[in-house]
């Protein structure tokens, strides 16, 4: 499997994935990717590219090559298994009147 960060040496700078947290209390969400020579410049480039319109209060970057991803070709065995297994959702319990705030 080709690594997500492998550019086939066409790029001189490695690829980085950018995660932006919109505000305190929320999770960092994948915003996109960019090229940068190192992690310090990657954070700065992320600030310039992905927080221009006040989208974030925090930025994470990670080298795309460092991400291990699931295999797109294996998506049947990976992700279709839960279908038909509704018992995995806890929807069959009845709520007790005696327990508030449930």
């Amino acid at each position: 499997m080709t690594s997500p960060g492998d550019s086939g040496m066409r790029e001189t700078w490695p690829l980085w994935e950018v995660f932006v947290r919109a505000s305190r209390g929320l999770s960092h969400v994948h915003a996109g990717s960019l090229h940068a020579p190192d992690e310090i410049m990657a954070v700065r480039n992320a600030r310039d590219l992905y927080t221009r319109r006040a989208e974030g209060v925090s930025v994470w970057v990670v080298r795309a090559a460092a991400i291990t991803a699931s295999d797109p070709d294996a998506k049947d065995s990976f992700f279709e298994s839960p279908q038909g297994k509704e018992y995995r959702h806890a929807t069959y319990y009845t709520e007790s009147d005696a327990v508030p705030h449930l």
Partner: peptide, 9 residues
């Protein structure tokens, strides 16, 4: 790019 732009007053 995120479209969850914060329109800060």
């Amino acid at each position: 790019m995120s479209h969850s732009t914060n329109h800060i007053a």
